[in-house]
């Protein structure tokens, strides 16, 4: 075990997988000598060379589009989109091409591309460096969407994504790139996709969340504990396919659900979780489900702290469902 930050764990996963499999290549803007603007690919260029750590021209549809071609040919490309806010030039390539290749070719052409991109608030980046728009992609059949919240999960989920045979959008919570620290197994480490993790067990209220919201939910749970409310937190880790069994298990235990996500509330991923619980477990519910999310406004600059759910807003929701 080594202690790492989340971004170091991402780097470690890339390094480990690139050593293990020479089909793995990394491409994107500034991923080479600079090692990426957040340093996720630091050191890869020196170790694996310019042919496998590819500085591309500045064009996201080209980055994803050429990665698709590489994958069709048999490579395992891991493109980086510098910020999730800049993924839209590649949106067509992702939703119409990448997500559908296996299906439309009758299984003849799988396209296992793992797109890494930092998402969400936390760096005072205004609306072009802060958004959390996972819902667009979860809504697209054929894509897997993964969001780690700890260094060990970042490494294990990224390694599993790269070894898999499906396209994956791997969303990295940049807010906790360097604040999330923890023990990470050295060498090969795999965490299966589609399996949630109980962050802390609790009896009274369930929180379902993911990514950068997890530490905030933990803080809120501590505040709630001081008020006598025992909170269970479920970290989904994978949004598509999500772990419905784990959601049902926690909700049937507590009967009270708060869903936390930093994306705009309406049609965000929390809407899916809420609908799922309403369909499958309404008889267990002792209180209405509460969503704590970003607002249906563009992501702000100066008022970021108001927009992004914080422990106090989460605590208020916990109290609301606990005392319903």
């Amino acid at each position: 075990m080594a202690t790492m930050t989340l971004i170091q764990a991402v780097n470690d996963a890339l390094k480990t997988e690139m050593r293990r499999d020479d089909r793995v290549v990394v491409l994107g803007e500034d991923v080479g000598k600079k090692g990426g603007v957040f340093l996720a690919t630091e050191g890869l260029y020196d170790e694996f060379g310019a042919d496998r750590v590819i500085d591309t021209p500045l064009a996201e549809s080209g980055i994803v589009g050429t990665a698709i071609g590489m994958a069709l040919y048999g490579l395992k490309p891991v493109p980086e989109i510098q910020f999730m806010d800049f993924i839209y030039p590649a949106f067509d390539q992702i939703v119409s091409e990448l997500a559908k290749f296996r299906y439309r070719s009758g299984g003849q052409y799988p396209a296992p591309v793992v797109i890494r991109t930092p998402y969400g608030g936390g760096i005072k980046g205004g609306h072009y460096h802060s958004q959390s728009t996972e819902a667009f992609f979860v809504h697209t059949a054929g894509l897997k969407v993964v969001v780690p919240s700890t260094p060990a999960d970042a490494k294990g989920l990224l390694a599993s994504s790269i070894r898999g045979d499906d396209p994956v959008l791997f969303l990295e919570p940049k807010a906790i790139y360097r604040t999330a620290k923890g023990e990470v197994p050295e060498g090969e480490h795999l965490v299966p996709l589609g399996k949630a993790r109980v962050v802390r067990p609790g009896k009274n209220v369930s929180i379902v969340a993911y990514g950068a919201m997890i530490p905030r939910c933990e803080k809120a749970a501590e505040l709630a504990a001081a008020k006598g409310i025992d909170v269970e937190i479920l970290d989904l880790r994978t949004l598509m396919p999500y772990d419905g069994d784990a959601i049902l298990e926690t909700v049937s235990k507590t009967g009270r659900l708060v869903v936390v996500y930093e994306a705009a509330r309406t049609c965000g991923f929390g809407a899916e979780v809420s609908a799922f619980v309403a369909e499958r477990a309404i008889e267990y519910l002792e209180a209405p489900i509460v969503r704590v999310a970003g607002f249906d406004t563009p992501f702000p600059y100066s008022l970021e702290h108001v927009y992004v759910p914080d422990p106090n807003r989460i605590l208020a929701a916990i109290e609301k469902v606990a005392h319903f």
Binding site: V64, I68, G69, E97
Partner: peptide
């Protein structure tokens, strides 16, 4: 772009 990636 797929063709270019495959050629790469």
């Amino acid at each position: 772009p797929h063709a270019v990636g495959a050629a790469y």
